[in-house]
Computed example of a mutant assay.
Amino acid sequence: MVSERPYAVCVYCSASTADQALLALAARVGTEIARRGWQLVSGGGHVSMMGAVATGARAGGAHTIGVIPKHLVHQEVADVDADELIVTDTMRQRKQVMEDRADAFLTLPGGIGTLEEFFETWTGGYLGQHDKPVVVLDADGFFRGLFSWLDELYDREFVSQSARDRITVANDLAAAFAALNPGAAREP
């Protein structure tokens, strides 16, 4: 008997921070993915928050899928412990594979790479390319400045209400996972 694959959450997060509180948050996210019987799709690095999410997920028995472009294999120390490690030629291919393999997206604190992934996923959902949940875990107000700026863009009519509605901003792990839940998908 063939079983349906587990629900897959793609997590975007830092591959460079050494902030212990953020590393612990990432590990808790991985643990929660495993506790729910879901699988993890990540950027395929075994460092910083990216590594902590994957390690936490695997420790709980979750299937992990790492997707990394070949030019980052050594820089981000490829997650060779991943159940599936997919090496792509380019960053664009990496993002496409991650999007295709995921049922939902969770953005944790990170830098420009994390933001770029978040914006592309958000835009794809807004444009109807997918109806998957897009969730931002705003731990300790990390994204406060970003969302203040997005509010200004809304006020100046550069961002529509329907675009804003494609994002769920959660302040804690419980709210983030409630929004990621399989039934949380929105209509495009």
Rank of each mutant, 00 (worst) to 15 (best):
T64L: 01
Q96M: 13
Q93G: 12
E76L: 12
D89C: 05
E116H: 10
A170M: 11
G60D: 04
R101P: 01
G145W: 14
P133D: 03
K95S: 06
E76W: 11
Q161S: 07
V67T: 03
A184K: 03
A62T: 00
T168D: 07
A178P: 06
G183R: 08
L153P: 01
L146M: 15
G113I: 02
E116F: 07
V134R: 00
L108D: 02
A82I: 03
T168E: 05
H74C: 08
A170L: 13
E99G: 05
A78H: 04
A139H: 15
F177Y: 11
D172A: 04
A82C: 13
T64P: 01
T64Y: 02
A59W: 05
G183V: 00
G128S: 01
I112V: 13
T90F: 13
S160M: 06
T114N: 04
L173M: 07
A176Q: 10
A170Q: 11
E116R: 06
A163C: 09
A179W: 14
D138M: 08
D79F: 06
V136T: 07
K70G: 03
P188I: 00
V87P: 11
W122S: 02
T64K: 01
D140F: 07
A178M: 07
R186I: 01
T121G: 00
I167N: 01
A139R: 12
A78C: 09
L180Q: 08
W122N: 02
G124Y: 12
K132R: 14
V77K: 13
A62E: 03
G113C: 04
A78N: 08
V136I: 14
G128L: 05
A82S: 13
A139W: 15
P188G: 02
L85K: 05
V73L: 12
T107L: 07
A102S: 15
A179D: 12
Q75T: 13
F158M: 14
L150I: 15
A185K: 08
A178E: 14
R94H: 09
V134E: 02
L72Y: 13
S162A: 12
F158L: 15
P69V: 05
I68T: 02
A176D: 10
G61I: 01
E152L: 11
I68P: 07
G60A: 01
T88G: 11
R144S: 14
S160R: 09
W122D: 01
S148V: 11
G124P: 00
L180K: 10
L146T: 06
S160T: 14
G113H: 03
D138H: 14
Q161N: 02
Y126P: 00
N181R: 11
L180I: 10
L106G: 05
G125C: 07
R164L: 15
R164F: 08
G124I: 10
V159F: 06
L115K: 06
